[in-house]
Design a protein around this nucleic acid. Structure first.
Lengths: 115, 115
DNA sequence: CGGCATACCGAAGAAATTTTCGGTACCCGA
DNA sequence: TCGGGTACCGAAAATTTCTTCGGTATGCCG
């Protein structure tokens, strides 16, 4: 079982929030799930640059942190689904603000990091 | 000279924004500088948990990315000052949203990650 | 002079994160 | 039976980030 190495920073509200979403793909996972529940395999297809393993791990952490809800259907072959929770929903304005900021300013960084 | 290993992700506006602030202390640095320009030594005292070296490096990256402005005073002993730039200012609403979210929800995680 | 301060940088190692590869178990279709 | 799919996990390797330590240079104060 994987253990979260750096637990959330409870003393600083900013770092607490960051620690929940600052790994490589968590914000993207939340951005995908906002449009509706998804199965792990759908998520892997939606974010093909991420290794499936890290999506598994980060989905589990998101679920442990209560930002995402996991439903297991007792079927064969196995099926499960991840949906954004109300707590996760409350992060959407932050995700949106970052999306808008990136959209507004990407030209600046295209010039800087071109190629 | 240190090179940024993972350049910003230009294709995804969300990851572009994240890549500018998701290192361990960058959001905290911006949160400090919003209240006015600071000298490196002041920042080290304001964020004593961060190693001075990583503050140096992240300040430099923030400056390279245009989020922070550096002023060197041609004095001896040397003096320099870092101030948030207009582009950095435009990230403040995101920082604020994360601060508020963390403040609102920290009780949830105090219970979960207590001790 | 010795100790402390300023600012900054390089390099080595530690630590954390992510990737890659392998495995479990089951089902379906060719 | 073989190849593909589902979901999930462990372990090792690779990568990235952070820390620690040392160094440059200068000046002030006792």
């Amino acid at each position: 079982m994987y253990e979260r190495k750096i637990p959330v920073d409870l003393d600083c509200p900013l770092r607490l929030t960051m620690s929940l979403i600052d790994s490589k793909w968590k914000s993207c996972i939340l951005d995908e799930l906002r449009r509706g529940p998804m199965r792990p395999s759908e998520l892997h297809r939606a974010l093909p640059e991420a290794s499936p393993r890290v999506l598994d791990i980060q989905l589990k952490e998101l679920a442990d942190d209560g930002l995402v809800l996991k439903t297991i259907f007792p079927e064969l072959p196995p099926r499960s689904e991840y949906a954004i929770s109300p707590l996760g929903e409350s992060l959407i304005p932050i995700i949106d603000a970052m999306l808008e900021w990136g959209e507004r300013n990407k030209r600046l960084f295209e010039a800087k990091y071109k190629k």
